[in-house]
């Protein structure tokens, strides 16, 4: 089975985000980048499918500037076979632009399954899976927590409000991966050493003009200082009163 994993490089979740001088983008100069955590589930699932079937190919597809190479190497070190890097400038691209670029490259590729995280943790748009599926006219199952590959079709469990939905789809298909799908592996030292020998194909495609533009970025309001109402049981009535009247949470 030929599997493509779409992987995005995002700022480390521990990054202290600073808004850039233009007020519309984040300051990237001191940001440490990592592989999008939800994409790790996609990589792990792809590798497990390949290992279970005993054959196949896992290709990582990533779009972004030169720095994206380190995320690609991480996926290769985890065990992916090869990579395609769509090179862009280090400017912000909206979901429309990215999905059209990825689709253009995917159209030229052979694949049975496309896996990706359910969302990227930087801009949290949660659009890539459905958008690419629409452009390629293939099914998309999103927010998947369990995946079963059968002969000719897949069965996926996805989280819905208050329960689980079980969906069947034919190949090729897109799956967007949710936490709980698997336990992503660490890149082993052997994997790290092998990663540099694996092929990374560089591609450039025409990037469509953005359909969205960011007007402004703002920091969330600073958290107000807490208040200690009192101590022990005698403070409870006052606490309840304040939670009800002031905080309006009960």
């Amino acid at each position: 089975m030929k599997i493509v994993v779409c992987a995005k490089q995002v700022p480390d979740t521990e990054t202290k985000v600073r808004i850039g001088s233009d007020g519309k983008t984040i300051e990237t100069s001191d940001v440490n980048y990592i592989l999008n955590p939800y994409d790790e589930y996609a990589v792990e699932e792809a590798l497990q499918i390949k290992e279970k079937q005993g054959s196949g190919e896992v290709t990582v597809l990533s779009l972004g500037p030169e720095r994206v190479t380190s995320a690609i190497r991480t996926v290769l070190a985890m065990g992916a076979d090869n990579a395609i890097h769509i090179k862009t400038n280090d400017t912000y691209l909206d979901s429309y632009a990215v999905s059209t670029a990825l689709s253009e490259v995917l159209r030229e590729m052979e694949y049975d399954l496309i896996l990706m995280g359910k969302q990227a943790v930087d801009d949290d748009n949660v659009q890539m899976g459905p958008r690419i599926a629409a452009l390629l006219a293939i099914p998309c199952v999103s927010v998947v927590t369990r995946l079963e590959i059968n002969d000719g079709h897949l069965v996926a469990e996805r989280e819905v409000e208050g329960g689980v939905e079980i969906v069947e789809a034919s190949f090729p298909a897109i799956i967007t991966c949710q936490k709980g799908l698997n336990e992503p592996r660490y890149a082993s030292l052997k994997g790290i050493m092998m990663a540099k020998k694996k092929p990374v194909e560089q591609k450039t495609v025409e990037i469509a003009g953005a359909k969205l533009s960011t007007l402004k970025m703002e920091y969330p309001p600073a958290r107000k200082e807490g208040k200690i109402v009192g101590e022990g049981a005698e403070a409870v009535p006052e606490l309840v009163k304040l939670l009800h009247e002031e905080a309006k949470v009960i």
Binding site: I34, A77, A187, S188, L189, I192
Partner: peptide, 8 residues
């Protein structure tokens, strides 16, 4: 490689 090892 050293950075990847360190991250891992």
């Amino acid at each position: 490689e050293h950075r990847m090892l360190q991250d891992m």
